[in-house]
Nucleic acid binder design. Structure first.
Length: 122
DNA sequence: ATTGTGACATACG
DNA sequence: CCGTATGCCACAA
């Protein structure tokens, strides 16, 4: 299924994986690019942010719940407005201070520890 | 095929 | 803490 309503071409499977995991992030929780990359065995966290960037258009992906390893809202500049990411998090009860998640360690939700392992190859 | 580009992460000084 | 360097890998041109 297409992720981008404006793009009718078949969606890259790579993106789909990232979106799917991102959608699993519980309300009020957050995760990191690295954690997602690790879960998907991508080997590179760059792919995650990059895929997430593309997702923005049509997919209902809570990209605001994904931050870098420091708990910073590094992707905020890619939202419609620079403050949107923080606002969304606050709406979920996540405290943000100076573009950084408070209680980051406690709110961190690691896919690899909460989702079933992926079948490699099949 | 080659090059450039990242919403990252880690290591080093 | 900060800046630099390097690894990482899918994708667009």
């Amino acid at each position: 299924m297409p992720v981008n309503p404006f793009d009718q071409k078949a969606p890259p499977s790579f993106y789909d994986s990232v979106f799917e995991v991102t959608r699993q992030i519980p309300f009020g929780r957050i995760t990191t690019y690295g954690a997602i990359a690790d879960y998907l065995a991508l080997g590179s966290a760059r792919m995650v942010g990059w895929a997430l960037n593309k997702s923005f258009y049509g997919a209902q992906v809570p990209a605001h719940r994904v931050v870098n390893r420091k708990g910073e809202l590094s992707g905020r500049v890619h939202f419609p407005t620079p403050t949107m990411m923080e606002e969304l998090l606050i709406q979920e009860g996540v405290e943000v201070e100076n573009n950084q998640i408070k209680h980051f360690r406690e709110l961190l939700w690691i896919p690899a520890e909460n989702l079933p392992p992926i079948d490699p190859g099949k």
